[in-house]
Every structure is written in C-alpha cells, then in structure tokens.
Design a protein around this nucleic acid. Structure first.
Ligand code: FES
Ligand code: FES
Lengths: 145, 145
DNA sequence: AGCTATCCGGACTAAATTAGTCTAATAGGT
DNA sequence: ACCTATTAGACTAATTTAGTCCGGATAGCT
C-alpha cells in the first residue's frame, strides 16, 4: 500500500491548526489536545518543521509555535522532506541501499524513478492551502470516487 | 515516508518481464530467478494479479503466466488495488478504522481525502507502458530532479 | 496410470518500520 | 526563583511488511 505516515498526517493537521490562529502562538500541548495527537510525538514533529522554517518557536509562558509562511508557500513536498528526508517511493532508490544483484541493468529502478518523479511533482504542486478544506468541500471533491 | 511496497515493486517488475516475452508463458521460477525476487513471494503476487485478469495461468510443464492485456491497459491503480485493495493514503480513511475522537469534525480526514484522490488519479494515469523505459531514458526524464 | 512441473491459497514466522514514551536539559518571561 | 514551554536523543512498544512453508489441485507427457 502507498501510505503517508503519521508524522506527515500530524504535521498537516498542526499547520492547518496554526493557520486558524493567525499570528498567535499555540503550544504543543494546546495543539495536541485539540487535534487528538500524542503530545510528545507532536513535539518532535514541530521541531523538525521549525528546522525548515515553516514555523518559529517562542519559549516560555504563552509561548509555542507560530506560522512564519503562508499556507500557499508550504508544500507537501517541503513538509515530507522536513519530516522524512527526500522522497524515495521505492526502497532501492535510496543511495547505498541497492542490494539487488542486477544493479545497473535492474529492470525496476528505472520505472520506480519515473514514478518517484511523478510523486515529487504532485507533492510539490500540493500546497497546504489546497488541503485547507472543510469536510463538506472535500466530500464534493471526491464525490465521484 | 510515502513508499510503495515490495508487492507493487515486484508486480511491476514481473509484468514488464512478461511484456518482453510476447505470448510465451513464463513460470514463477523463471521470473523469480531472472528478476532476483523470492520465488514463493512472487508466486503469491502473481496469483493476485491473475485474479484481476491481467495475466492468465497455464498449468503443467512449460506452463506459467502470460499477459492477457496490453501494457497500456494495465494501470498502476489496477495493480495496487489487485495487490493491496483500494488506495488509502492515510490510515483514518479506511472505513471502520476511525478511532479519532473528533470523528466527523476531524480536521485531518478532509485534507487526506483530497490527497487520496490526487494519488488515485496519478496512479490511474500511470499505465505500465509509461513505466516501460530503459535506464537511459529514465535518467533523462529525471535529470532535473 | 503415474510422474513431473506448475499453479493455488492459507497459515505461519521473521524482519523491518513506524509510532510513541521517557528523561534530562535549555530558554525566556513574570 | 519559578513556571511554562521548547529541544534533543535514547529507548520501547506496536504495527506492518516481507518472506516461508506446506498440503493440495491441475494439466501435460510418457
Ligand atoms: S531492485 Fe533496485 S536496483 Fe535492482
Ligand atoms: S484522525 Fe481520521 S477521523 Fe480524525
């Protein structure tokens, strides 16, 4: 199955939450309890997101995290790279992981590279404002599926 | 990380292998040893692919599997659905798995539905002839990345 | 009929990854 | 000082994925 992991899921959730708070900072505790995410886990996630500059951290009382970019400037690509490193849609695309004996002539690495590129493009084209939808809007969008 | 599993990887590999054999059947043993895939595992994979009609099975000596569709008729969507069921890019999109207390108002299910739809469209648009490339062609295609 | 090569399908085990916890430290505001 | 909150890394638990095993069925060949 092709699936996004929880870090990404929670990351999207947290950033959308922050988007609703305008310029105010929200603490990890606040976000975690409102979003139903384990606090310590979200804490790690926010750190990584901070390290790529999508949010800034404010220490101390009334502190927390604040958005420093527009939702339209935050892409799913940037978020997943922040949380999991570069996208590698198949294991053997990772440098130094190619255990396959076929190596250069391997018939799967080329197709997977093509697919990888497509996913990267899709994730790059998907900024968070694209995902900022209400449940109702979403059900319209996917009505056919 | 967003990653396709080995079943899908091996499935693509096997189907591309069959495409090169024209109308001749290839046994699981042959495919497995040529592609460097565990034989018993590939066996299960081919069964699932057979069940959706992309290949047919020939019993007995000189038997094996044969392609019954054109590569252009085999989509990545069809293949992954054959091997893993419907695409669900996030865990909570599965019916009956929504343990989240927010349920209906949950702020993550809508965005993930949007993303899911995008992935489904991409996989639907990606037929196997798209992936039937040589290593050289592929490196051109991804040169910029 | 009997032999052999192959597919079939489920139950099982092993390996790897992901999810989540714990602990101790640092930073800043009041 | 004290309180709240971030930071960072090591650790454990849970889940998923990958891979094995085995008894059985099917078809062709001699
Ligand atoms: S399986 Fe990736 S190089 Fe062969
Ligand atoms: S996390 Fe999926 S419904 Fe809330």
């Amino acid at each position: 199955m092709i699936r996004v992991n929880k870090k990404i899921e929670y990351g999207v959730l947290a950033l959308l939450y922050l988007a609703d708070k305008e310029d105010k900072a929200a603490s990890v505790r606040e976000m975690a309890s409102n979003c139903g995410v384990p606090e310590t886990l979200l804490s790690k996630i926010m750190q990584s997101i901070k390290n790529v500059g999508y949010v800034s951290a404010v220490y101390g009382n009334q502190g927390g995290y604040k958005l420093t970019k527009e939702l339209s400037e935050i892409t799913l690509l940037g978020l997943t790279e922040a949380l999991d490193g570069p996208i590698q849609v198949a294991e053997c695309l990772e440098e130094g992981t190619r255990t396959c004996p076929a190596k250069a002539s391997c018939r799967i690495v080329a197709p997977m590279n093509v697919l990888n590129q497509k996913i990267v493009e899709l994730f790059h084209a998907t900024s968070l404002d694209t995902l900022y939808v209400t449940t109702e809007e979403a059900s319209e969008k996917v009505a056919v599926s």
